[in-house]
Each structure stands twice: as structure tokens, then as C-alpha cells.
């Protein structure tokens, strides 16, 4: 990889200051960025590691019941610490990548990268999470802007993510056999005021909400409510691992399964 300057600040403010340099880039757990840099597909002049910032670590339940997860919290910690308060989210975190990846990869890194096949975007979008940065709070509905595209500005870092905890939720991931990312993943979250369904891995526009399914489930939270609903193959990803038609089909199957598991 290309050489770069490495910095590991101990506070958010130091990290923000360090990221003001030209071509500086934040480094979360590095589980995607480092392989990318090995291919010389990224060339930051400076990497600012966020792993040494204590205030960005950890999982806590707020007074309103929402779950706040520090941006630099590894997946393995979320899997353990959120198990009681938000089991569907914990299960999702506990099935990202593999154990070693989960010990390094962070929620902030995943959401900042917004890989179209990543798991966390589905959880954040279906939960109606709020992406908290050093500068502002961004509702998930505004945050995800297409494959690898987010609302983050240059130098802005995700300090935490606030998840409202639904009454019931479930995430169904269908593995892409090689990468073990989601070939398709569906997160269904049932709140008192409605149901949110987010699909990852499927669309060329990245994670999205399946509004027809949400409407159907809002009035009848059962797999049967989804009968006859289908996603169009148009705009779905087609690659070695699955055709657009297959992904559209799979999204519907997984949605039903998520509803069954959550109900």
C-alpha cells in the first residue's frame, strides 16, 4: 500500500482536528479500508485511527430506552452488550464477517463505508436510527444515499449511533458464499407506530426501505400479509452470486422469514 502518516488521537476533538489535513481519512477497524489500501485503491496521506478514543466506545441504554452505541465499538462488543436490550441488533452484529473481523470492525466504520452488502445499514435504516457525528445528528432516512454514499461531509466522523428499540425485530441474512457479506439481508422492525423493513445487498442504490411491505405489515404483522407482494428485479444487483431476479425473490423470502421470527 501507499505510505501515509498514522495518527491515533485520544479524543473526538483531536480526531476532528487531525482530519482537517488534506487527504486525511478516518480509520475505524480497518477491515474494509486496509484491504482496499493493499490493492492501492485508496491513497490517504494521513490515517486517523479512531480506536483509541474512549468516548466513542461502548453500548448504553438511554433513559428513553434507545440504545446508543459508540462509533468505534467493535461488532463483537455490540453482539455481547446489546444482547439483552436489542437482541435482533446484537444477533446481526454477531454474524458480521467472522469472529476476528468482529473484534476489529466497528459500527461507525461500517456505516461510514455504506457497502451495499453490509449488514449494519439495514439495522440502522429499519430501526430509524440516528447517526450522531461530531457535528450533527442525521436520521437514517437521510443518511444513506446510495452505494458507498452517505450524508457524511469530509472529515466528519460518526461518534455514535442511537437506535430506538422496536417492540419486535429480526434480521435475516443470506450469505454471499465467498465474502460472507449479505447476498441479501432484510431487517424488519416493528414499532408501536408502524413497521420498518430495510433491505441490504440487493439494490444497486444500496440499502432501501420496502415501503409496500411496511404498509402491509403495519396493518397485519404476519407473513401472510406479504402474500402477493414482490419487489421488481429492475435495479437489483446482478453478479456472479445472484441475478437481479434472484435477489428480488430472496428479499421477499427473507422478509417473510424475518416477520415469522419476530412475531
Amino acid at each position: 500500500m501507499y505510505e501515509f502518516e498514522f495518527e491515533r488521537p485520544g479524543s473526538i476533538s483531536d480526531a476532528v482536528a487531525a482530519l482537517k489535513t488534506d487527504e486525511a481519512q478516518a480509520l475505524g477497524g480497518g477491515q474494509t479500508l486496509i484491504p482496499t489500501m493493499k490493492q492501492r485503491l485508496a491513497n490517504p496521506a494521513k490515517l486517523v485511527s479512531l480506536t483509541g478514543i474512549g468516548e466513542m466506545q461502548g453500548v448504553c441504554v438511554e433513559d428513553d430506552g434507545a440504545l446508543t452505541i459508540g462509533g468505534a465499538t467493535p461488532h463483537a462488543v455490540v453482539a455481547e452488550k446489546a444482547a439483552a436490550s436489542y437482541p435482533a441488533l446484537a444477533a446481526l452484529a454477531g454474524n458480521i464477517g467472522d469472529p476476528a473481523v468482529r473484534n476489529r470492525g466497528t459500527i461507525g466504520g461500517s456505516l461510514a463505508n455504506n457497502d451495499p452488502s453490509a449488514c449494519y445499514p439495514a439495522a440502522a435504516l429499519a430501526s430509524g436510527a440516528v447517526i450522531v457525528t461530531n457535528a450533527r445528528e442525521i436520521p437514517a432516512d437521510d443518511y444513506f444515499q446510495g452505494m458507498f454514499a452517505t450524508a457524511l461531509e469530509e472529515g466528519e466522523i460518526i461518534t455514535s449511533v442511537r437506535f430506538p428499540v422496536p417492540r419486535a425485530a429480526n434480521y435475516q441474512k443470506f450469505d454471499q458464499a465467498a465474502s460472507r457479506f449479505a447476498l441479501v439481508g432484510v431487517f424488519v422492525a416493528r414499532f408501536d407506530d408502524g413497521v420498518r423493513v430495510a433491505v441490504t445487498g440487493a439494490s444497486e442504490d444500496g440499502v432501501f426501505r420496502w415501503s409496500e411491505a411496511e404498509a402491509a405489515l403495519g396493518s397485519d404483522f404476519s407473513a401472510a400479509a406479504l402474500d402477493g407482494l414482490a419487489l421488481p428485479a429492475d435495479g437489483m444487483i446482478g453478479d456472479l452470486h445472484g441475478t437481479p431476479e434472484y435477489r428480488a425473490h430472496l428479499a421477499a423470502v427473507l422478509t417473510r422469514r424475518a416477520v415469522q421470527a419476530a412475531a
Binding site: 458464499a177 465467498a178 465474502s179 453478479d239 456472479l240 452470486h241
Partner: peptide
């Protein structure tokens, strides 16, 4: 499966796409 596209670019060029 080792797969090339019509131009000869290897699509299954790493463990991200070649399923071990």
C-alpha cells in the same frame, strides 16, 4: 467458480468472489 467477463477481466479475483 473462476469467471471471466467478455473482455477477459477476472470477476472472481479474490476470496471476496471466489467462494472457498
Amino acid at each position: 467458480g473462476c469467471v471471466y467477463d467478455a473482455d477477459g477481466q477476472l470477476l472472481s479475483a479474490s476470496y471476496m468472489d471466489y467462494a472457498m
